[in-house]
Write a protein that binds this DNA or RNA. Structure first.
Lengths: 211, 211
DNA sequence: ACCTGAACACCGTTCAAGT
DNA sequence: ACCTGAACACCGTTCAAGT
């Protein structure tokens, strides 16, 4: 059976889940695929290209199931939550996606879906792009942090040697908090801003006067 | 003259600015410092520790000059802009800081400054922490993107082979837009959300009725 | 067309030994 | 205390040569 591009991606994803991004080498990937490391270069230009394909596979989950029709802000929130879950589904998923400037098909599909949501709601295309960027950065940053388990261990270690400062107490609380709740809080901050601007552009006051 | 920790950080930062993060190796750093690569390990546990110290040096600019007294939202915006400028001041600055979970002194100072701004404004400590996380993620994500010049070149190349889609036109506009303006737009989205929550917690309506 | 085998030019890290 | 010299166990990538 001949090696196909899709097989390489599947193998790389399995290796990623098993050992993490730092242990994902072309040599180990070759071994898993029953091939010399050099052989992979017939299918992919270089390691970066493999990682881009892996990133696109991960992001593909976001558009795998269709979106329920509904209000634009609910849809945008759903999109953000899907992206976070897709990243969390694979070890170091957020780092892989953040590290590759993805122009692959699945990522394009996701971006276009998000833009349609915004423009359908009456947002001008360029502002919709800026909103999409802001939301994406937030999701990536938050999820990278969630997957960096170092955080917890390091902080606990440090907390013992440090004086009981305000920052210290806060970090304890932030780490103990439910990550999904924390994620949703920040996402809602952004969505509030978008709602405000959308209402302004519709020529309404920021007071909700309708009933 | 003996090698000090601070010299290693200065050398690493110079190497970073000259050649970028990917070319920053312990061997090249040693050469620049007039020392064998192994010698660095007497001062730092490993390469990661060097990068953490570099990250803290970069972030130190944020608290280098005192904050003007003023409204909390203006101060928080100032903090975010300072962080972005500090990251942009060095090649791959955002990637370095994002890649190191920093618990170094300058970063702690910055975090505590930000928390004080929020709690002085009447925000509960735990929510202040969540807001700070959200803002930090946004700044890091946006600035990583700004520093990935790949974006521009790659997209222009791709744009020629792709059909003239809506996404295509948008990306052109987003790339051409002033980065500072784009950054400020997303930041204001978040700040709007924070303002809303602060007003609610003060028991006022979202309508500004004073005046 | 697709992959092997072997090489090239590197890495980070360790550690005896020097001073 | 501070650093050298040399080694160890790796890397990503290339490319003639095989099938």
């Amino acid at each position: 059976m001949q090696l196909k591009r899709a097989d390489v991606v599947t193998g790389a994803l399995a290796l990623l889940d098993a050992d993490g991004l730092d242990a994902l080498t072309m040599r180990k990937l070759g071994a898993r695929l029953g091939v010399q490391a050099g052989g992979i270069y017939w299918h992919f230009r270089n390691k970066q290209a493999v990682l881009e394909a892996v990133a696109d596979r991960i992001v593909g989950e976001v558009t795998a199931t269709p979106f329920e029709p509904g209000a634009w802000d609910a849809q945008l929130a759903e999109l953000a939550h899907r992206l976070r879950r897709a990243l969390l589904a694979h070890r170091d998923g957020a780092r892989v996606v953040a590290g590759t400037y993805v122009l692959e098909p699945n990522t394009e599909r996701g971006a276009e879906a998000a833009l349609r949501i915004m423009t359908d709601a009456g947002f001008p295309l360029d502002r919709a792009g800026w909103v999409l960027f802001a939301v994406t950065y937030y999701v990536l940053g938050h999820t990278i942090e969630e997957q960096a388990q170092r955080a917890q261990g390091d902080w606990e270690e440090r907390g013992k040697t440090l004086p009981a400062s305000e920052l210290n107490r806060l970090m304890d609380e932030v780490i103990k908090a439910d990550p999904t709740e924390r994620f949703t809080y920040g996402l809602e901050l952004i969505l509030d801003g978008v709602r405000l601007r959308l209402e302004e552009s519709r020529g309404r006051s920021t007071c909700s006067e309708e009933k």
